Computed example of a mutant assay.
Amino acid sequence: MSAVRPVHIAIDTGRCIGAGQCALTAPDVFTQGDSGFSEVLPGREHGNGNPLVREAAQACPVAAIAVRLR
């Protein structure tokens, strides 16, 4: 069994175009705010072990999501 490694998720709000692919891929971590741009849900900045976080970052058409190991 592999251990879940904590990550830090950041969205480059200057790059985000609000495509919403992250929210569609990992809706328990990402949402689209009132502005229409992607946001990390409160308390989910570390991904909570969700294996779809990296997939959501890769789905972003403008590479606005960074997922880094902590």
Rank of each mutant, 00 (worst) to 15 (best):
A10M: 09
H46W: 09
G18P: 06
P42D: 15
L52S: 10
I11F: 09
L24W: 11
I9W: 01
V53A: 05
D28Y: 00
I17M: 10
A56C: 07
C16V: 04
C60Y: 05
H8N: 08
I9Y: 00
H8Y: 04
C22K: 04
G20D: 10
R44W: 02
N48W: 00
H46D: 15
A26G: 05
A66T: 14
R44L: 01
L41R: 14
T31F: 11
G20T: 06
M1K: 13
D12K: 03
P61L: 12
F37R: 08
A64R: 08
D12G: 04
P61H: 03
A64I: 02
R70E: 10
I11Q: 10
R5K: 14
V62K: 06
F30Y: 14
R68S: 06
V29R: 03
V67K: 06
A63H: 11
P27Q: 03
T25R: 10
A56K: 04
A10P: 01
I9R: 00
E39D: 07
L41G: 01
L24K: 13
C16I: 05
A57I: 01
A57D: 08
V67L: 03
R70S: 09
T13F: 01
G18A: 02
G33P: 04
R5I: 13
S2K: 15
C16Q: 08
Q32M: 12
E39C: 07
G18H: 07
E45Y: 00
C60I: 07
Q21Y: 08
G20E: 12
I17W: 00
Q32V: 12
L41Y: 03
I65M: 02
L24Q: 13
G14N: 12
C60D: 09
E39V: 11
G36K: 05
I9L: 00
M1C: 09
T31D: 15
A26M: 03
F37I: 03
A63G: 01
L52E: 12
A3D: 15
A26F: 04
P27F: 04
S38M: 02
H46F: 12
V29H: 02
G36C: 10
A10L: 11
T25M: 07
V7I: 15
H8C: 05
R44F: 04
P6T: 12
C60N: 05
I65K: 02
G20H: 07
D12E: 11
R44H: 06
R44A: 12
V40K: 02
G36T: 05
G20Y: 10
L52G: 01
T25K: 05
D34Y: 04
